[in-house]
Design a protein around this nucleic acid. Structure first.
Length: 278
DNA sequence: ACTATGTCCTGCGAGC
DNA sequence: TGCTCGCAGGACATAG
C-alpha cells in the first residue's frame, strides 16, 4: 500500500528514468476509467508535453509537464505552459516503465508513449488509484517531513477522534497511511485509540519526532513491500523488515515480549503493544 | 465544523 | 479440490 515513503521512492525512480523525455501519445483504457479529470483533458494535456520532472506531494505522484505554447507564439504569448499529471496509486496502483513491445498486463488503464521508445503504463487491479491533470496541484494537508512542531500540535489539539484516525486524515497531514501511523504511534509509545485531544504536549512532541523518524528511515530503505508494492525499477523495498507492530499481531513486542495486539479503529486494523503503548 | 460509516474494487487466504 | 466469505485500505460520499 503506497504511502509517503513508497510514493517518494517511486517518484525519485521515475524522475531518474523519464525526466526530459517527451510524451508523444496517450492511450486510456475503456469503460470505468480511474480518472478524476475528463479523458480528453488528460490526453490534451499530456500529448506532446515534455516531462520536466517527477516528484511526490503527499501520496500523489506529480509529473511536471512543459508544453510549448500553441503555434508559433508572439513574444507575449505564453511560450511554455506549465501543467501537472497527477497519479494516485491507491492500494495496488503501479507505474511501469516499459518497452513499447512489452506484454500488456491485465488491469492496464493508461499508457503514455514516450519519444525514447519507452512507455509509462498505469496498472491498477483494484482501481483505487486515480489519474488527473492540474495546473496548480497542492495537497490539502501539511507535509509530515516539513511541518513545524507548533503547527503539528495545533492539528490535533482539538480533535476528539482517535489519534490513529487523525493521523490518517489527509486534510490534516498528507501522506501518512495505515502502516506508518501504527509504526509512529509505536515509537512514540502512544495507543492508537487515544483521543487526539487527550495527548499531552510532550506526547505530541514524541509523535511528531517519531513520525518524521519512521518516514525518513522508510524512505532510506525504499519503502515497505507488504503485498505487491515495487518501485519504478520493479524492486521491492525493505522497510517491512523494520516494522515493530504493523502485521505482527500475536508476535512478541521487540522491547517487552508482550504479544502485539490488533484492533479495528474506524474500520482500519491497528497494531500496538498493550504494555509499551499508553 | 467535526465525526462516523458505507462504498468502491480485485485478489487472496482461511475455513469448510 | 473447490467453493464461499471476509479482509486488505485510500479517498470520497453521505449521514448524523
Amino acid at each position: 500500500m503506497p504511502e509517503l515513503p513508497e510514493v517518494e521512492t517511486v517518484a525519485r525512480g521515475l524522475n531518474q528514468l523519464v525526466a526530459g523525455d517527451v510524451i508523444e501519445s496517450v492511450w486510456l483504457g475503456s469503460k470505468p476509467e480511474p480518472l478524476k479529470s475528463p479523458a480528453r483533458e488528460i490526453v490534451l494535456t499530456l500529448e506532446r508535453a515534455q516531462i520536466g520532472g517527477v516528484r511526490r506531494v503527499g501520496k500523489h505522484i506529480v509529473v511536471d509537464l512543459l508544453r510549448a505554447g500553441a503555434g508559433k507564439s508572439k513574444a507575449r504569448n505564453k511560450p511554455v505552459d506549465k501543467a501537472q499529471w497527477i497519479v494516485h496509486l491507491g492500494m495496488t496502483g503501479r507505474i511501469l516503465v516499459c518497452r513499447a513491445g512489452d506484454e500488456k498486463l491485465k488491469h492496464t488503464h493508461a499508457i503514455a508513449s514516450l519519444r525514447s521508445g519507452r512507455e509509462l503504463r498505469f496498472v491498477d487491479p483494484r482501481r483505487f488509484g486515480r489519474l488527473s491533470v492540474s495546473s496548480e496541484f497542492a495537497a490539502r494537508g501539511a507535509e509530515p517531513l516539513e511541518v513545524q512542531l507548533e503547527a503539528f500540535v495545533k492539528l490535533f489539539r482539538q480533535r476528539k477522534t482517535p489519534i490513529k484516525s487523525a493521523l490518517l486524515n489527509q486534510s490534516l497531514l498528507s501522506g501518512v497511511g495505515n502502516i506508518y501511523a501504527d509504526e509512529a504511534l509505536s515509537r512514540a509509545a502512544i495507543r492508537p485509540r487515544r483521543r487526539a485531544s487527550s495527548l499531552r504536549r510532550e506526547e505530541l512532541r514524541r509523535l511528531y519526532l517519531s513520525l518524521k523518524e519512521v518516514l525518513q528511515e522508510a524512505i532510506a530503505l525504499g519503502g515497505s513491500s507488504v503485498s505487491d508494492y515495487v518501485d519504478a525499477n520493479g524492486d521491492q523495498g525493505s522497510f517491512q523488515l523494520q516494522h515493530r507492530v504493523y502485521g505482527r499481531e500475536g508476535e512478541p513486542c521487540l522491547v517487552c515480549r508482550t504479544p502485539i495486539k490488533r484492533i479495528m479503529i474506524t474500520g482500519r486494523s491497528s497494531h500496538y503493544c498493550p504494555h509499551c503503548q499508553k
